[in-house]
């Protein structure tokens, strides 16, 4: 059981300045581990301001945590040598949200495939490189003769994003962090792209951290889900129970607000925050208290810890204070392993 990438009590604060500027605690004491195997899909779900983008940046090493560490194969990211850093880039890849911005308009789309082949030494000759590109493009359902040699503006958003998945396949990382990979892609192509990501995991053994605001697609492809609210984990665990029987009031609100494509299943009635909840300040206590229909006195005093309500789930809510607290262990200790979900799905 080797740990590939680990977030160890990571917190990130933005905006501390000389003068008393408003500081923003984007991520609050987050701990999670991704193992090298088995390959799993973990979704991190949250709205804007939840901290999910910050988490992505911190995991990818784009920005350093204010406190805590990100460890790659046991070593702190900030202490990696040049060689180790290259190995990190090889093993941990990214798929960005915007399929337009991610291509340099000066080059044809081949460029995004040729660059990693060159830098990571994936082929020894031009012919071999070409074969490799054809192979991965076909694997994601694209026709090489229609994609290679084109400029980015000549392809649709869906095609461009699929080329990004092909690129990830090319590098054969051990972990892909996908930050809202389909939110800017048309609905009819979303399923195809998500399916190819799922294939990457099941067939090629690449783990995936799927960051999104869309709880439904998160449910469809992930083994485990982490729900973030304003920098803290609201709920986490196996995907099925979280979506079918959400425990945290925020998750319940989230699921209830999703517009179902069925005119007979209207939005569930909106619940008003409780009287106590309405008097909550932003300084202390549970971050969700001001919107929570179940807020109690204790919710205003201190932010709730993660209660382990079942072997495979935790919820940060005093409603479950009778359950044991998951004190120091990282989130993944409540995750299910993919074999279990394989059997349950389809």
């Amino acid at each position: 059981m080797t740990v590939l990438l680990e977030a160890h009590h990571v917190s990130k604060v933005y905006g501390s300045g000389l003068f008393k500027r408003e500081t923003n605690l984007a991520l609050d004491d987050f701990s999670m581990r991704i193992e090298t195997e088995p390959a799993s899909i973990t979704a991190v779900v949250g709205e804007s301001g939840s901290g999910k983008t910050t988490l992505a940046r911190v995991l990818l090493g784009e920005t350093g945590p204010t406190s805590g560490e990100i460890r790659f194969l046991g070593k702190d990211l900030t202490t990696l040598s040049r060689q180790e850093r290259k190995a990190f880039r090889r093993d941990v890849q990214v798929i960005f949200q915007d399929p337009y911005e991610v291509y340099n308009p000066f080059y044809r789309v081949d460029h995004v495939l040729e660059t990693p082949i060159l830098k990571f030494g994936l082929a020894t000759s031009k012919a071999q490189a070409r074969d490799l590109m054809v192979e991965v493009l076909s694997a994601v359902g694209l026709r090489p003769e229609e994609t290679l040699g084109r400029y980015p503006h000549q392809l649709s958003g869906g095609q461009r994003q699929r080329i990004m998945v092909a690129r990830a396949l090319l590098v054969r990382p051990r972990l892909i962090i996908a930050d809202e990979p389909v939110s800017m892609v048309d609905a009819s192509l979303r399923a195809t792209i998500l399916d190819s990501l799922r294939t990457l995991t099941r067939e090629f053994g690449v783990s995936l951290i799927y960051i999104t605001h869309d709880l439904i697609t998160a449910y469809q492809i992930s083994d485990n889900i982490v729900v973030l609210y304003r920098g803290s984990v609201a709920e986490a665990g196996a995907a099925e129970p979280i979506v079918q029987a959400p425990e945290h009031p925020y998750t319940q609100l989230l699921i209830g607000s999703i517009p179902q494509p069925d005119p007979d299943r209207m939005w569930s009635p909106e619940q008003e925050p409780s009287t106590i909840g309405r008097s909550a300040t932003r300084i202390s206590g549970c971050k969700f208290a001001s919107r929570c229909p179940h807020a109690m006195e204790m919710c205003l005093e201190q932010h709730p810890p993660l209660y382990q309500t079942e072997p495979n789930r935790v919820a940060a809510c005093y409603l479950y204070r009778d359950a044991p607290v998951l004190s120091v262990a990282p989130l993944d200790s409540v995750f299910v392993s993919p074999e279990t979900t394989e059997a349950a799905a389809d």
């Binding site: 869906g158 792209i193 399916d195 799922r198 709880l215 469809q220």
Partner: peptide, 23 residues
């Protein structure tokens, strides 16, 4: 039909089907 079929459901995990072809 294809558009509605490609909508992911929240009730059960299923296969993800898109609409093949280009816009």
């Amino acid at each position: 039909k294809l558009l509605i079929a490609s909508l992911p459901s929240i009730d059960h995990k299923g296969s993800l089907r898109g609409i093949p072809g280009l816009p």
